[in-house]
Nucleic acid binder design. Structure first.
Length: 503
RNA sequence: GGUCCCUUCGUCUAUCGGUUAGGACGCCAGAUUUUCAAUCUGGAGAGAGGGGUUCGACUCCCCUAGGGACUGCCA
């Protein structure tokens, strides 16, 4: 049932490579396995059409393909479906690869650009013609419209009168259609939906080659999937109907039909098809909102697929557990709250240095000016605040208190708390802090506790004032952590600013 | 209109003929408390409706309703 990838290799070699302008992108996007063995023979592919950004639903489709390939020890390939030259743009190609790259999904072989394979597609069409499984059709647009209306009224598939008549004038532009069987039925044994049968009479004779000689999608996918040795076609369930038509083409060519897995689309929180009004759609937007790739992968994997009670897991676990057959049949809704939670779980596990880089980059995008030592400040603060942040953007918010420069302006609430008694007490605390053996959160916790004890008061007597002085009212973690994040010098400085006798 | 797909707490899911229908997010309450979070404990919350099959149905079958896809010389 499974075709060896080697069988496909020779075919592909005969086509020219992608446009030079895209070569750089290709290099970075492909990650050919050095050895190349593929014991299970599984080959999956993600085949986006470059007419826009990488949609979150497409990203999940890519992820499922990738997970399944990894799970089976097979290959994951990427093919750009750009047969529609009018609508395909290079900007879109770049955007899609940027999204995939961010998500960490790379092709195991060179990326295929479908339009470069047009000669091969034409070749196959001529084979079908020779086999009597395709025919030339000179129907005009007007004729088609009439036929379509009639077919719709009768509840039948559209048929061309040229199907059974002698060929017309070859010099007049015409399309080439597939000659589908009129009886029997076609079974699509879908891995997700189960067996689905279509009566062949319902399936129309789809156009294989346009009047301008360009191949159409339904033909190109079949030829490319076959030539690339794709064994598992995992794609959106908007293609379920196409699967039957495509199966017919495989059969006409005597090619093995790949396994199909049609996964449901992702809907917006209200259950409607995901669109602009639901907030983000493009994976790039999720990146800008401060989600991190591993959090996104985890959330996306859990959307429409589950493994018992496991909610938060890493790639290794996802790979070992994932199976397309377990994908849920119904469409899932995007849930921002759960995305946030999942992302937060991964954020807290992420490396501090990496988070510092991400937070700094996000902070630089904001309008507020940053101190020269912003990186150092963020680096000190990240470990103390990352557990409370759901996104990188929130992480930056939580670093804000540390990015303020002296002297801080104290809010009214804090100023009111600075009674003579409190000021004197904080001065005593200042001395304790100055002589603390170390300035990490753990040490400071001890210092604060013993100070409160020696003063014979609770934290309530000086905590709020201290906090106000240290943060200027910005949200911050526990006082000991806040001071550790600020450093001894900055903490004492902020205290001195506030405790100095007023002029 | 026709063909096809889908339907368990608000949301994501578990269950694969016998469970007090489990978990997670969110929500509510409490704990903690030096702000905002985070954290911990507890709670409310579901098998679209109707028929079958069966000793027994969320699970199998049929119908209805609702949602969706396709029906292009788009992909």
């Amino acid at each position: 049932m499974l075709r060896r990838p080697a069988q496909a290799a020779s075919r592909l070699a005969f086509f020219d490579a992608a446009p030079a302008s895209s070569l750089a992108a290709l290099k970075s996007m492909s990650n050919p396995s050095p050895t190349g063995p593929n014991p299970t023979g599984v080959v999956t592919r993600f085949a986006p059409s470059p007419t826009g950004f990488l949609h979150i639903g497409g990203a999940r489709t890519a992820l499922f393909n990738w997970l399944y390939a990894r799970h089976t020890g097979g290959k994951f390939l990427i093919r750009v479906e750009d047969t529609d030259r009018e609508r395909s743009t290079e900007a879109a190609v770049a955007a899609i690869f940027e999204g995939l790259d961010w998500l960490g999904l790379k092709s195991d072989d060179e990326v295929i650009f479908q339009h470069t394979r047009a000669p091969r597609h034409v070749e196959v069409v001529h084979e079908l013609l020779a086999k009597g499984r395709a025919y030339r059709c000179w129907m005009t647009v007007e004729e088609l419209e009439v036929a379509r209306e009639k077919a719709r009224a009768e509840g039948k598939a559209i048929r061309s009168p040229w199907r059974d008549s002698p060929e017309g004038d070859l010099s007049i532009p015409h399309v080439i259609r597939f000659k589908g069987p009129l009886d029997g039925e076609t079974l699509v044994n879908d891995l997700v939906k189960g067996p689905v049968t279509f009566r062949n009479i319902e399936l129309d004779d789809l156009v294989l080659l346009r009047a301008d000689g360009a191949p159409t999608y339904n033909l190109a996918v079949v030829v490319d999937d076959h030539d690339m040795g794709v064994t598992h076609v995992i794609r959106g369930d908007d293609h379920l109907n196409n699967a039957a038509r495509q199966t017919l083409i495989y059969q006409a060519m005597d090619w093995a039909v790949p396994a199909f897995a049609h996964i449901p689309l992702i809907h917006g929180p209200d259950g409607a098809k995901l669109s602009k009004r639901h907030g983000a759609q493009a994976v790039g937007e999720f990146a800008d909102l401060g989600y991190i790739p591993e959090g996104m992968r985890n959330y996306l994997a859990r959307l429409g697929w589950g493994h018992g009670d496991d909610e938060v897991f890493n790639d290794e676990q996802a790979i070992s557990w994932f199976d397309v057959a377990d994908v849920v049949k119904a469409p899932a809704r995007l849930d921002w709250a759960k995305l946030n939670h999942t992302n937060a779980q991964h954020l807290r596990k992420a490396d501090d240095a990496r988070l510092t880089d991400l937070a700094l980059a996000a902070a630089q995008k904001r309008d507020e000016p940053l101190p020269d030592d912003a990186r150092e400040r963020i680096a000190r603060t990240v470990p103390e605040v990352k557990e409370g942040a759901k996104t990188i953007l929130e992480l930056v918010d939580h670093c804000a208190f540390a990015l303020k420069t002296r002297p801080l302006t104290l809010d009214e609430k804090t100023q009111k708390q600075l009674t003579e008694e409190t000021v004197e007490r904080l001065k005593r605390l200042r001395d304790q802090l100055a002589s603390a053996p170390a300035f990490d959160a753990a040490t400071l916790e001890t210092v604060l506790k013993s100070f409160a004890e020696s003063e014979g008061v609770g934290f309530g007597k000086f905590g709020p004032a201290l906090r106000g002085i240290l943060t200027g009212g910005a949200p911050a973690p526990d006082l000991n952590k806040t001071m550790a994040a600020l450093s001894r010098e900055e903490s004492l400085g902020r205290l001195d600013d506030a405790l100095a006798p007023r002029a």
